[in-house]
């Protein structure tokens, strides 16, 4: 029996349809998005099926085209399929209300990701729009803009302390307090928590989780209103923010 890895909101639908797949000589195996090193374990996968739209955070999210990009970039030989309740004829789309006679035949005629521009739109929230806003250079919805501001202030302060040996009280007043870094950190974290749930069904969610963990590590420095000098250096706040920026930038360059 051939195997198909799948991603779904929960197990209800895959379990219900597994009988049909088995009758077609295919077995369904859930794929964990949350694997090690920021990537889902797809190396042994030949066919990946997404049940779309992905429901999370009380919103239906259309994740299919980010996955399409991801598969094209990292696993171009994987056959990517989607399944849902929209009515659409696409070589790689399974209409759950009108399943094909032969899955074998359907798979044989499905196209590789390099052969088509996009997956059929599953009708939910277009996650690319969220990513775009997340990565916008400026504005009330940009996370990277706010992160850039916090990073700049922390970098200036760290340079002052480490290189120029300026008194910390002077740095605190001139950089952190004069520029309201605590408020900016609060805005940054608030935006982060608003965005994070939307990205749960995405292939690079593990990276977001890593970023979340790093932000938690340095949060005490800001919660103490940046007043504790040893936190700035001891927590490696600048270096950690740099890692956060780098991790997010890699995703932004490819998907935003």
């Amino acid at each position: 029996m051939k195997q198909i890895s799948y991603i779904a909101t929960n197990q209800l639908l895959p379990q219900a349809i597994s009988t049909w797949f088995e009758a077609q000589n295919y077995s369904l195996k859930p794929l964990s998005i949350h694997s090690e090193k920021g990537h889902p374990q797809l190396s042994n996968t030949n066919i990946l099926l997404l049940f779309v739209p992905f429901f999370h955070n009380n919103v239906y999210i259309s994740i299919e085209n980010v996955w399409k990009k991801y598969v094209a970039l990292h696993y171009p030989n994987i056959l990517l399929l989607t399944a849902g309740y929209i009515k659409h004829t696409h070589a790689n789309y399974l209409d759950l209300l009108q399943l094909p006679e032969s899955l074998e035949y359907f798979i044989k005629h499905a196209k590789s990701v390099s052969e088509f521009d996009s997956m059929p739109f599953s009708g939910g929230l277009i996650i690319e729009n969220k990513l775009q806003k997340f990565y916008e250079g400026h504005g009330d919805e940009s996370l990277t803009d706010e992160l850039g501001k916090v990073y700049r202030m922390v970098t200036i302060a760290t340079d002052e302390v480490k290189i120029h040996h300026s008194p910390y009280i002077e740095v605190l007043e001139n950089i952190f307090q004069a520029n309201h870094i605590v408020d900016k950190w609060s805005v940054l974290i608030n935006r982060w928590h608003n965005y994070l749930p939307f990205f749960k069904g995405l292939p690079f969610f593990e990276t977001f989780k890593e970023v979340d963990a790093i932000l938690k590590q340095i949060a005490p420095f800001f919660e103490q209103e940046c007043k504790i000098e040893s936190h700035l250096i001891g927590f490696n706040v600048k270096e950690k923010l740099h890692i956060v920026k780098q991790k997010l930038e890699i995703i932004g360059r490819q998907y935003a």
Binding site: L12, L13, A16, I17, W20, Y60, Y85, L96, L97, G124
Partner: peptide, 17 residues
């Protein structure tokens, strides 16, 4: 309405196939 439709079919999935 979209969410109702998706939820409806999803809830009915044990029965749909």
């Amino acid at each position: 309405i979209f969410e109702l439709k998706e939820d409806l079919f999803h809830s009915l999935s044990p029965f749909l196939f």
